[in-house]
Amino acid sequence: MYRSPFANDMYAELDRLQREMSRAFEYSPSIRGAVRGGFPAMNVGGAPESVEIYAFAPGIDPATIEVQIEKGVLTVAGERPASLPAGDSKASVHIDERFAGSFRRVVTLPEDADPDAVTARYRDGVLHISIQRRETSLPRRISVQ
């Protein structure tokens, strides 16, 4: 946490408050943004030894999902076929909310993510990508001589 060196510096306090607010609301996200509501929905988490990405992409043949890492950017792309009946059939559509069509989402990876140690698994409609962190970035105890 940021602390002012002067206990009663009001401006520093305001500055700190603003900094914390903007962090809480992700006011300054990366240039690629973090568009909510896109398909697939994504959860990203960081573990001590890996970065975990969960893409909620139900109803897709895992063989058609394209996962790519290039220059520290992860791309998940694919296509979800429409399941509603074609317009010329005699069926009537009451609710149409599910996503259909091609999709592409991009996630910026942390610098220590190792693009050569990636596993991707598709289960229950969730694509789980696990990327190991490079060993050099793992916390290491340095002995003092």
Binding site: A41, M42, N43, V44, P48
Partner: peptide, 10 residues
């Protein structure tokens, strides 16, 4: 995995 903290959750 153990010790994971969510950084972005939709």
């Amino acid at each position: 995995p153990e010790g994971m903290e969510a950084t972005h959750a939709e």
